[in-house]
């Protein structure tokens, strides 16, 4: 029953990370991530590091699953609603739809998890400069709304 309790504890957190990155494939990503977490739990040496370890697995799995199932998306954001647009709050999903999985991962790590660029880069295994450029492009059109 201990595994059940851990699964209950971690599922909402993993769902919050996988949902915005993997979108329609979010449940698949969350399922895969939780399998990896529970299967590899014995490799975790420091219990206090659990949340960060789970975050790394969930974000990487969400990007992998989203890339596997994704259709081509434009790199730019031509149709993003302007800041202050009353439709924007309801259109966050539509905005995320226009981003690549990696863009979405960067935004989730920075805006939901509060990671700095270096930490986000390390987690995504990409250069910090790439994180910065991805973040700049992704946030350019709706920064004010997301930071409100």
């Amino acid at each position: 029953m201990a595994m059940q309790a851990l699964l209950t504890e971690l599922t909402p957190y993993v769902g919050r990370l996988c949902g915005p990155i993997a979108l329609d494939e979010g449940p698949d990503a969350a399922q895969n991530a939780l399998i990896i977490v529970l299967r590899d739990l014995r490799q975790l040496r420091e219990p206090a590091a659990l949340r960060g370890w789970v975050r790394t697995i969930a974000v990487r799995e969400a990007v992998r699953v989203a890339r596997r199932g994704r259709r081509d998306v434009p790199a730019e954001l031509p149709d993003v609603p302007a800041p202050g647009d009353p439709q924007l709050a309801a259109d966050v999903r539509a905005v995320l739809d226009r981003l690549s999985p990696a863009h979405r991962a960067v935004l989730v790590l920075r805006d939901l998890e509060g990671l700095d660029e270096a930490a986000a880069a390390e987690l995504l295994a990409i250069p910090a400069g790439t994180v910065k450029s991805r973040l700049h492009r992704a946030r350019r059109s709706f920064r004010q709304e997301w930071e409100r």
Partner: peptide, 11 residues
């Protein structure tokens, strides 16, 4: 804003 972000459910 975080309430508007999609989440993934585990059924």
């Amino acid at each position: 804003m975080s309430a508007a972000w999609p989440t993934a459910d585990l059924d």
